[in-house]
């Protein structure tokens, strides 16, 4: 489990990084908490690593009137400890509790997590649930993709060769928004067997509107659960309504079976966690 041979670059500007990324089979190094183990296991053998750590400004957290902007090199500990974020997007701060262990949270980054696209990772789930917009830059210019379109499959994104995530933009929340994050893993910090991120707003008659439910761990990529959302939109959250939403969620996920959990078990977890999240959000 030694790393294969590779070239290492640590450019000081984004332009330089984009130029270096034109090297065939180059990969961005943004914390390395997933990429380096994968390389040690010889599951990836990039020709070059382009480390973003020396590029100024990529670790910025900016909260404006309309949006939260996270630089790709924002580390989990930066998110965890940012007071403004805890108020502006409490769902994200809450999810951080489940991200691996503190040693990993000291190094792992939001951009790295999105690009790695682990279906069990928390941040991609938050990005999808919260309608994040992902800003990309490459040799062919800049573009923006919706988080929901970024993830194609397990460890697979729509990023083109040489493209770098330059910023993650999350819409601001109304103060009164209801939200919850629930995850289950066998040990604290392990990959999620299933997880649910959700929020909704209440209308004047305390009916749920604008319901967003995202699932991680129990699907091949983070995704929304439109069936469960539809079961809740326009409804006051009663036990009966929650039960219907959970049944819809279980029906619309298609979990994988592996040594950590069967499809049937993961499907059931989705229902259990959604039920718990809805109870928490509504209380």
């Amino acid at each position: 489990m030694k790393l294969p041979d590779f070239d290492y670059h640590s450019p000081t500007s984004l332009d330089e990084a984009i130029t270096l990324m034109a090297t065939p089979n180059a990969r961005v190094l943004a914390g390395g908490q997933s990429l380096l183990p994968i390389m040690a296991f010889r599951l990836a053998a990039p020709s070059a690593l382009v480390d973003l750590r020396k590029i100024k400004g990529l670790d910025k957290i900016e909260i404006t009137q309309d949006a939260i902007h996270l630089g790709p090199m924002v580390r989990w500990r930066d998110v965890e400890r940012h007071e403004g974020l805890a108020a502006a997007l409490p769902l994200l701060t809450q999810a951080m509790e489940h991200v691996a262990h503190y040693q990993i949270r000291n190094r792992g980054t939001v951009g790295g997590s999105l690009a790695h696209a682990d279906p069990a990772a928390e941040f991609p789930g938050i990005a999808v649930t919260c309608d994040a917009r992902i800003h990309l830059a490459g040799a062919n210019g800049k573009r923006v993709v919706a988080a929901g379109d970024l993830f194609v499959g397990p460890l697979e994104t729509c990023l083109q060769d040489g493209e770098i995530i330059t910023s993650i933009e999350l819409p601001r929340w109304p103060q009164a928004r209801r939200w919850a994050f629930e995850e289950f893993s066998q040990r604290r910090g392990d990959f999620a067997l299933a997880g649910i991120a959700l929020f909704y707003d209440l209308d004047g008659e305390r009916r749920a509107q604008n319901v967003h439910i995202g699932v991680i761990g129990a699907t091949d990529r983070p995704r929304r659960l439109p069936g469960a959302e539809a079961a809740l939109n326009g409804q006051a959250l009663s036990d009966e309504v929650i039960a219907k939403a959970c049944a819809a969620a279980c029906a619309e996920v298609d979990p994988p079976t592996d040594i950590h959990g069967s499809a049937e078990y993961r499907r059931s977890l989705v229902g259990t966690l959604l039920q718990r999240a809805l109870v928490k959000a509504s209380s």
Binding site: P37, F41, Q186, R187, R188, G189, D190, F191, I259, H260
Partner: peptide, 25 residues
């Protein structure tokens, strides 16, 4: 648990698969 498939391949390859107790458990 050390899990094998029917062909005799060991499916457990790291400590992310072989879940030993950690200090806080």
């Amino acid at each position: 648990e050390l899990v094998y498939d029917a062909d005799g391949t060991l499916l457990v390859g790291s400590l992310a698969d072989y879940l030993i107790p950690v200090a806080t458990d």
